[in-house]
Design a protein around this nucleic acid. Structure first.
Lengths: 144, 144
DNA sequence: GTCGTTGTCTTGAATCATTCAGGTTAAGCG
DNA sequence: CGCTTAACCTGAATGATTCAAGACAACGAC
């Protein structure tokens, strides 16, 4: 099982998602995939390091489009700006450090696609489960 | 099992949490408990309806203090402002409507305190699990 | 290869929730 | 009845995100 299923190449992924292939978007997509739950500012600065100038709006729009297309996933731990990750499609969750904000992936153990359905859906048509574990990461739990 | 365990009365709850008892804070606490995942603006306007004038900062500070004291719980579904609820201490989760933003409580079925621990804690000291189910509420799934 | 459509990118301003600052009021203990 | 300090007030600032409107360029059609 591959980490995430990346078809042929990023360019064709964009195309088959109905998006145009531009240097900026390729760099944004690769940056998100190469990074670890990056926020918009970090994505932007890394992309700028590669390409020169790219506007914040271009990054926001691209990330929004990618999220809608299912190419990336957006997470937003309470109190922190939105973060993006390349791992999509597998039902995994997150550990978030209350001190430093670090985010770490956790696989869900309870079976294959656990936590995917609430006990009682109250009539809702549920399409996603978002599980966040809050605590203190190895580095930050020292001083406790 | 009671819905939520409310000791003697709100005033003594505040006191035993080390907080002073003021008309504003009593009204804020009761408003949150009587409401359904209210945001700060709604809490403020309801409290104002009762008491006359109360500043936003007073409400923010009170809600922050209550949250720290464990009297209320703060949730923050991605993309929406913070919301507060009076149900605390029982491990329950939330259904959030993608269209209207409505939030509904769900009890966790998988045992008593489920989803409380991740499969692999990656060295984190986990103290809370935050589970949000995204979907379409009964009212909003009609047009689909 | 050229053209046209429209998705993408740019600059600049605006919005919204939340927080910070500093000073005033009043809860509750001695 | 004072004192200490939590609580509250007004007003301004911050930071992430979005809106607006025009310029540019990807890519399918010709």
């Amino acid at each position: 099982m591959k980490d995430t299923d990346h078809p042929p190449n990023p360019a064709s992924e964009l195309r088959s998602a109905g998006l145009r292939v531009t240097a900026a978007r390729l760099a944004i997509l690769e940056t998100v995939r190469g990074g670890n739950h990056l926020d918009v500012e970090t994505v932007t600065s890394r992309v700028r390091g590669r390409l020169g100038h790219v506007s914040f709006q271009a990054v926001y729009e691209a990330l929004h489009a990618f999220t809608a297309a299912g190419l990336v996933r957006r997470i937003e731990p309470a109190g922190s700006p939105a973060r993006f990750e390349g791992r999509v499609g597998d039902n995994h969750h997150h550990l978030v450090c209350r001190v430093c904000g670090r985010v770490t992936d956790v696989n869900c153990t309870v079976g294959e696609a656990p936590c995917l359905e609430p006990a009682d859906d109250a009539g809702y048509l549920v399409d996603e489960a978002d599980v966040t574990f809050w605590g203190f990461c190895p580095d930050c739990r020292q001083g406790s």
